[in-house]
């Protein structure tokens, strides 16, 4: 059973660069260890974080024009684990989250997709995802039904 009583919400900050992602995920995973989640749940959390952070670094932050950071806030409640990721990059197009279908893999090898899996993976792995632009910041909330 998850050890909710001992859990307190925490924040992990990272520089907005690809090379900082691995360490930020490890730090987050280490702090979540107290919840006693299953290996598969921990994998899900790490995959969702990796994809969300990569998207921000690749698509939102290049428009800032200066080095900038990302913040991950983790909170565990009766609904599961909420990961709120905040950045000061460009807003989502139309202020809405992408919802692409899985890339088509029933194609010749030469046409096999090498990308476009990120948002499909996030949406497949989370219970809920929401987005809000406020005070010049992007707030992405990922809810994971873990430790149930």
């Amino acid at each position: 059973m998850p050890n909710r009583e001992k859990f307190t919400s925490f924040t992990v900050s990272l520089a907005g660069v690809e090379t900082a992602v691995c360490n930020a995920i490890s730090q987050t995973a280490a702090q979540l260890a107290i919840l006693g989640l299953s290996e598969d749940e921990m994998i899900t959390i790490q995959l969702v974080l990796a994809e969300a952070l990569n998207n921000i670094i690749e698509h939102a932050l290049p428009y800032v024009g200066k080095p900038t950071g990302i913040r991950i806030k983790a909170d565990y409640n009766a609904c599961g684990l909420d990961l709120v990721i905040t950045d000061e990059g460009a807003p989502m197009r139309n202020h809405a989250l992408p919802n692409p279908p899985a890339p088509d893999i029933n194609v010749d090898i030469a046409m096999m997709p090498e990308g476009g899996f990120g948002w499909f993976m996030i949406r497949s792995l989370v219970q809920d995802v929401s987005y809000r632009r406020k005070d010049g910041l992007n707030h992405l909330t990922l809810r994971l039904a873990v430790g149930g």
């Binding site: 995959l47 990796a50 994809e51 990569n54 096999m112 997709p113 899996f117």
Partner: peptide
């Protein structure tokens, strides 16, 4: 991650 998957593809 999906970038690693893409690199293997």
């Amino acid at each position: 991650d999906s970038s690693g998957l893409g690199a293997i593809v």
